[in-house]
Nucleic acid binder design. Sequence first.
DNA 1: ATCATAGACGCAATGATTTTGCTTTAAGAT
DNA 2: ATCTTAAAGCAAAATCATTGCGTCTATGAT
Lengths: 183, 183
Amino acid sequence: MVRPGGRSAQVQASVHAAVHELASEFGRDALTVPLVAQRAGVTPSTIYRRWGDLQELLSDVAVERLRPETAPGDYGTLHSDLTAWVEQFLDEMSSPAGRAYIRDALLGNPDGSNAGQCSAYAAEQINVILTRATERGEKAPGVETIIDHVVAPLMYRILFRPAGLDAPYARRLVGSILGPAGP
Amino acid sequence: MVRPGGRSAQVQASVHAAVHELASEFGRDALTVPLVAQRAGVTPSTIYRRWGDLQELLSDVAVERLRPETAPGDYGTLHSDLTAWVEQFLDEMSSPAGRAYIRDALLGNPDGSNAGQCSAYAAEQINVILTRATERGEKAPGVETIIDHVVAPLMYRILFRPAGLDAPYARRLVGSILGPAGP
DNA sequence: ATCATAGACGCAATGATTTTGCTTTAAGAT
DNA sequence: ATCTTAAAGCAAAATCATTGCGTCTATGAT
């Protein structure tokens, strides 16, 4: 039974806020359940009961933090829209903070859909871009193609090979799917 | 100062073994340092001193577990070699145990090269396949291309979208890079 | 072959976190 | 207004993490 705005919601909000504050104050690795609980004005047992453990909580917070806040910009062509989006994606995700959030998101319970949610966010953004391109009359590949051959390589490198990852690389990926930049 | 075969090596071996055993007995999430220590016949402080914490230890074990034990098979053509390797890769990595190991490997210390090591293993295997193809006179793409457009999409789906991941999908990825299976 | 030494381990005490039974609170339904 | 019930608080108990100190072991030099 969901009770939006009720006490539960307030607790969740203050706990999430506490995680943010403490993470930026003392660093993500200094977080502990009792610490977060104190800052949030809650008892530790509340957190343990609702989230199970710190990892679940962090995973939860990470997903919220990874949700895009704005629709992809419109730059007139599919190629430029996608390039811009990919560059921003890379920027946000490859920072130390971004990588930490991604790793946290991956840590949630077995098939708790936290990680899936992240992927869904990206798919949604890409879908907006592709739909817009189609409406303009441009020929556009499928969302899956972009995910497989642009997003996935970026994410792979972010997670497994933090070095050798820059904007030119990202643009090259876009080019390899859409062909070289149009006129 | 490395002392292979010494007490240290034995401790490491029995601790690793204990992790394996307990993980398959009680599940990875039931592991605790004291539990592992007891099974390994060691005191918890030994583990804390050597590995720091449970995550480091699990990350360590995961990398060892993810190391390929055998060179990629030779099936006569690049296409079949790569397809076979990819199918095996998918098999091993997409199982619940495989995914758990990957996640653990990602968890090691900040940029402790554990995750990088995994990526290096894959690159090495692929390199063997591509070199063999080149020696046969086949035209072969670079290692990076295979990583970006075959390994990365697989890994992305393993981590973020466990559903909709099967051998045909993997073969399609290979086909999209090498072209349809040749004679 | 023996010795000196650095590194690693065991033990045990201490401090922090996690878990659990019971009680209390407040949101939503009657 | 009262009732029902999910969720939170409280506090004790259990478990886990951390650390100082002494001991042991394998190594390299004598």
